[in-house]
Write a protein that binds this DNA or RNA. Sequence first.
DNA 1: TTGAGATCTTAACCAACGTCAATGAGTCGC
DNA 2: GCGACTCATTGACGTTGGTTAAGATCTCAA
Lengths: 200, 200
Amino acid sequence: MSTPDSPSLPNSQDPLQALTEQEREELVSLQRLERRRKGEHLFRSGQPLSQYFTVVEGCVRTYHLHDGEEFTLDFYTEGQTVLPAVASKGIVAPSFAVCMEDCLLNVTDEQLEQEVFARLPRLKEICRQQGEQLQLTHQQELALHKSATPEQRYAHLLATRPSLLQRVPQYQIASYLGIKPESLSRLRKRLQKNSSGTST
Amino acid sequence: MSTPDSPSLPNSQDPLQALTEQEREELVSLQRLERRRKGEHLFRSGQPLSQYFTVVEGCVRTYHLHDGEEFTLDFYTEGQTVLPAVASKGIVAPSFAVCMEDCLLNVTDEQLEQEVFARLPRLKEICRQQGEQLQLTHQQELALHKSATPEQRYAHLLATRPSLLQRVPQYQIASYLGIKPESLSRLRKRLQKNSSGTST
DNA sequence: TTGAGATCTTAACCAACGTCAATGAGTCGC
DNA sequence: GCGACTCATTGACGTTGGTTAAGATCTCAA
C-alpha cells in the first residue's frame, strides 16, 4: 500500500549495506546537505560537471532539449542519485536537471568526494561497481523502451513508481514515455475502460 | 567518401592517444586475439561476464530477448568495444552478443586486465573515465531514441554508419530502430521518393 | 531443375500517435 | 468575483506503424 516507490533504474538496492554501521555513520557525518528551490537547475547540458546530487527530499527531473522542446529523461525522488558519484574530472553534463519541488539534496563535489574516499576507502570500489551495473541497466532501459509500446511503458511506470504520477504534471510523464500529452490522456482513458471491465 | 563509419556511441575517439608511443606498443603486445565464427555467442543475458571484447575485424550484434523476439541493441564493428573494460567482478551480462560474421576479437579477461593495468597504470584511469562518459552517452542515446521518429533514427543511422546497412540484414536494422521490417521497407520507400525530388 | 529457406517488398486494413483546435478544471493574483 | 495562466481532456483528421498475407529474389542443396 505505501511502498515508497522503487526507482525505475535500480539506483536502488542500497549498496551501502556493505559498510559497517560505524562506516555508515561516518558517511552521514560527512554529508553536505543543501536546499534548492523549485525551478532551480542543478546542471545544464554541456557544462562540466563538478557536483553530484542525491535527493533527500523532493523531486528532480532530468531532460534533454531538442529543437526547443524538452524531453524528460527521468525523475529522481527520495533516495535516488541524480548522477553516480565516482565521476572523473572533465565529465560533461549530458542533460539538464531541474528541481520539480523545493528539494533537500545531498551534494558532493570533487573535494568532498576525495575526503569521503580517504575516510572510507572501501566505498570507492562500491561506487564504481554500482556505476558499472547502472550502465548496464541503462542499456536495458533503452531495450525496454524500444521493445515496449507507450501503453506498456505507462503500465510499467504505474506498477513501479505509482506515486510519481501524483507528483508530476502529466505532460512531463508523457514526454518521459515518449509521447504527446494528448496521447497519454487517451491512453489512460483506454486503460480505464478496459480495467473497469476486468474488475467485475 | 570512404570514412570507415563512426560508431553511434562514441565508443570512439581513441582515448589511448593519452598514452605514449611506447605504452601503446606495450598494450598491443599484451593483446590476446581470438577468432570467432559467424553465429557464435560472446555472452548470454544473465551470465556472469568474465571477458570483454573489442572487434578487430567483423561485426558483433547485441540484442535482448523479449517474449521470444529479438530486439537488437547495437552493432559493433572494427575498432568498437562491445563492453567497456574496467568492469568489476560480479557484473552480469545485460544482453546477448553474437557474431554476425566471422570475427577477429581482442579478448580481455580479469587476469589479463590485471596484468595490463599493472604494466600500464595510467590506463586504468583512462578506461574508467571512458566508461563514465560512455554511460552518459548511453543516456543521450535513450533520449535520442525517445525524441526522434523512426524515420529520423534511420536517417541518423544512414548518416553516421552507412556501411552498416550494407553489412547487416534489414530486418535487424529494423529491430535496432524499434520498428518492424515491413515498416522499414515503407520508410525507405518514402525517403527515396522525397529525396529524388530534392536532388533536382 | 526443383524445392526449401531466408530476406525484402507490396498491399490492405486497423489501431495508435501527432497535430490542431476547442473546451474544462484548477490555481493564482488582483 | 474576474481574468490570466497552466494543465488535462476531447474531437476531427491525417500520418504512420503493426498485422496479415502474398509475391519476388536470392541462395543453397539435392
